[in-house]
Design a protein around this nucleic acid. Sequence first.
DNA 1: CTTATATTCATCCTTATGGGTGAATATTGT
DNA 2: ACAATATTCACCCATAAGGATGAATATAAG
Lengths: 112, 112
Amino acid sequence: MPATETLLDHTLIALADPTRRAILRRLAQGEARVTELAAPFAISLNSVSKHIRLLERAELISRRRVGREHILSFRPEPLRAARQWIERQERFWAAGLEALDAVLTAEQDKED
Amino acid sequence: MPATETLLDHTLIALADPTRRAILRRLAQGEARVTELAAPFAISLNSVSKHIRLLERAELISRRRVGREHILSFRPEPLRAARQWIERQERFWAAGLEALDAVLTAEQDKED
DNA sequence: CTTATATTCATCCTTATGGGTGAATATTGT
DNA sequence: ACAATATTCACCCATAAGGATGAATATAAG
């Protein structure tokens, strides 16, 4: 982890924990308060609060305060960036296979 | 991190480090030996070796030994699973927006 | 004003990362 | 047999995660 962590780093770190993914799944379907988010888990409210902070660092969620309640909302942009990184690797890989296939086909043609 | 870490966990953990992403980018374009993979980095060969182990745990790469050389190859499947998890959240989010939009439109119609 | 609710802050503990170094192992080349 | 090459193994160190608990803060409700 270099001194300069990118948003993509933060996004993937945030996604790498099952509790945070569950929280995000929940928030993708609509806003919720911290206590509501914590309810399904066996861990302390405090731990959930920390997970929320990591999700905020990744800009995957944002917080709006209404009185004593903190209302969290899903933010889709970082997911898009992470998905695009993955898609790029998948495409490079596919391109490599095609190139290899072309080479092998050419070899085969030479032999005929 | 529960005692039961899933392959998706391992995949996202593996992707969460820039060095490993660089290694994967490289391998997506063709096989390479450990030393070749390590060359672009300022870190020790040993550290690269450890990164490789995490990538193997995630099944993002596989290893084939040829004499004293270990040849690493990219394996696309886990990336596909990770991408699909992301796409699912993106779709849930979009569906939520549409539903909200429908509600607001209905409200508007009532007022007219 | 007092109490209950919603959250975070401050600590503390344990484990996993990420990095380093030196030795061990395996294989190749002379 | 010997030296060079390719990798891992065994440790050591620092920091971040993930969890817990108890206190502090802020707001709502009686």
